[in-house]
Every structure is written in C-alpha cells, then in structure tokens.
C-alpha cells in the first residue's frame, strides 16, 4: 500500500510537472509592444516583437528619431535642413545623407514620370495654405498667384553633385511624396539591426512597412481607409509578409469651392489638383514607390497609372471619382478577403 501511494505521487507530480513545463516552456507566439504617437505632423504606430533585447526600448529609440527627421524634412520649420536648402538662393548646399537620398529618389522618379511627379511644387503648397493645420487658412488662390508660383516649379532646376544640391530658378522642394516611405525604411532597418528575425510593422502617416511577418509566418492585414468614410472604416484589405503599402488621396487636406473639390496634390503643369481619383493605394517592395506612385497617379490618371505600374512592378488599388474600384492584376497577390 505504501509503495502504491509513492508511485501515485510520483506519477501525479510527473504529469502536473509536464503540464506546467509545456505551458511555460512551449514556444509561445511573440508578444508585440505597440506604441502610438503623433510625429512629423501625422499619426504613427509601431508594433514590434523581438527575442533580442527589450522591444519597448527599441520602439522608443525609433520614436526618438522623429525629431531628427522633422529637422531635416519639414520645409516649413525655419532652420530645418530642407528649409535652409529652399532658401539658399541658388547656392550649392552640402546636405545630409538622409536628405540627399530622398532628393535623388524624388528627382529620379520625376524623370521617369516626365514631371508628373515633381518634388519642386513647394511654392504652391503655402499658396493654398495646405502647409498648416489651420483649416481656416486653406483657400483657393487667384489664377495669377498660381501662374506666378508655377514659374518656380520644375525638377530640372535641381542639380546634384556628390553630397551637394543646388536649387535654381527659386524652386522649393516638398518631399512629402517620398519622405514617409523613406522613414519607414529607416525604422525597419533599426528593427532588423537589433534582430534580423524580429517581427512587426511601422506605420508613419498611413504608409505601412513590414519589419517581419506576424508571429514569424503570418501576414499582417492592412486596411485601406474608405476615402469617403471615417478613419476606422476600411474599404478593402491587403495581406503583407514584407514590403510597403501607402495611400494618396483627396480626403484630408482639401477645400470645396463652388461644389468642386481641391486637394493638396498639385499637377505641376497647372498648379491645381486633378479629379481622377479619390484615393490610390500602392503595394511595393520599394519604400519610396509606396508613396510616390500614388502621388503620380493622382496627377497622371488611370491610363498612365496602369502603364507605370507595369514598368515599376507595383500593385495598385484605386477608387475613382465615381467611387469605382480599379486594381491591377498584381493586386491579387496581396488582396485579403476576410
């Protein structure tokens, strides 16, 4: 009897022990640390999991870099690097590697698109008041004001020599068309430098870049905001294991005058926004195209959008002004239907 009790006790302890061990030692899914914020004049979300170091510390480090990027890329902060370049009166200016990279990519894309995407529309932005959050200052400029500003637009006025840039003819650069994708890429680099197998995503102003698949092998599901819905209302979804998704649209910075909508993406030839699309969402392996392609498409319209997408190998999902969905074949790879 005594022997029997000992065996029962050992058996019970072994089973309970193995249950405990399986609960605590089994490979559990990584726990994501998520931080929200408002940076660079837009909202930011980073979700991150790693087995190397503390995820919160890495995410906090990422957030700490935004101040640096603000002082590089914000053309409306007096003293920022881009502000100083825009006010350099045609002199050669040595620029930081971050600024140089985005200027080079922007000018390269301007060449490819024959100026439909043009980062030198800087002087048009304050003319409409879209450089500020003060909605009361958003207004329709006079045709004469637009004509005058257009005399200072044109990507061929940007000269690059090694790490120096010269802006001719009084052009001002506005790099919003590629900046968010680039910053996504820099933050992802930080995450991967910490742990190449780490997982998560970064979302800077609606441009989402993937650090690594969810739980190591599952896609992240990214909603596409309904251009005529509220900010949590998605019209479709993409699934991403890697790469970037970004959206351009007419629904946040706009005014309606005499029933016509004018928004913040200008045709560099006319100085006004075009009315082809409510939004264009792009999936790309290149961070800069996830933003830049949408801006180009809002200006260029559907036929040029399709042609350029084939050349660049990007996937797009567009909503035209009639609310119809236009998407290319490449999009099927990423489409997610819950």
């Amino acid at each position: 009897m005594k022997k029997r009790n000992i065996i029962i006790s050992i058996f019970t302890v072994a089973i309970v022990g193995s249950v405990v061990a399986s609960v605590f030692l089994a490979k559990t899914p990584p726990k994501y640390y998520t931080r929200y914020g408002v940076e660079l004049g837009t909202d930011v979300e980073i979700s991150y999991a790693t087995e190397k170091g503390n995820a919160k510390e890495i995410v906090d480090k990422m957030f700490n870099t935004f101040q640096k990027y603000d002082l590089i890329f914000d053309p409306w902060i007096a003293g920022s690097e881009l502000y100083n370049l825009n006010h350099s009166d045609g002199k050669w200016v040595k620029v930081s590697p971050d600024l140089l990279y985005v200027i080079k990519e922007s000018i390269n894309f301007a060449r490819i698109t024959n100026g439909k995407f043009d980062p030198t529309i800087g002087r048009l932005v304050p003319l409409w008041g879209f450089n500020t959050d003060n909605t009361k200052s958003w207004h329709l400029p006079t045709p004469q004001e637009i004509q005058t500003a257009l005399e200072h637009v044109g990507y061929k006025n940007v000269e690059i020599k090694e790490d120096e840039v010269r802006l001719l003819n009084g052009v001002w650069l506005d790099l919003n068309g590629m900046m968010e994708g680039y910053i996504d890429q820099m933050l992802i680099n930080m995450a991967r430098q910490n742990d190449p197998k780490s997982s998560g995503f970064v979302d800077v102003g609606g441009t989402v870049g993937i650090i690594g698949p969810k739980y190591g092998n599952q896609p992240w599901i990214i909603g596409i905001q309904n251009p005529r819905g509220n900010p949590n209302n998605s019209i479709a979804y993409v699934k991403l294991y890697s790469g970037y998704v970004g959206t351009s649209g007419d629904y946040e910075r706009y005014i309606i005058v005499n029933g016509k909508r004018y928004y913040h993406i200008f045709d560099p030839k006319t100085g006004y926004s075009n009315d082809y699309f409510e939004s264009v969402t792009t999936v790309s392996t290149e961070s800069v195209f996830s933003d830049g392609f949408g801006v180009f498409s809002m200006v260029a319209g559907p036929s040029e959008m399709e042609k350029m997408a084939s050349e660049l190998g990007v996937a797009y999902y567009a909503v035209n002004e009639e609310g119809q969905i236009i998407k290319n074949e490449e999009w099927q790879k990423y489409e997610y239907k819950p």
Binding site: G37, N176, W220, G223, Q225, P227, G246, E252
Partner: peptide
C-alpha cells in the same frame, strides 16, 4: 483609434471584446 493630429492626442481601446479585422490602416499622406 481616435486621432487629433493638431492636438497630438491619440485615444485607443484596450481589453475590448472584439478586434478590428486589420492590424494597421493605410490612409492618405
């Protein structure tokens, strides 16, 4: 989330019964 960019306010829920279909949202920049 509820976000006010000019005020630098973010509101989000925790412990809700339901989760959104998406992990993140892409919107115009």
């Amino acid at each position: 989330t509820i976000i006010s960019v000019p005020n630098k306010i973010v509101v989000y829920t925790e412990g809700a019964k339901e989760r959104t279909t998406y992990d993140a949202m892409t919107f115009q920049n």
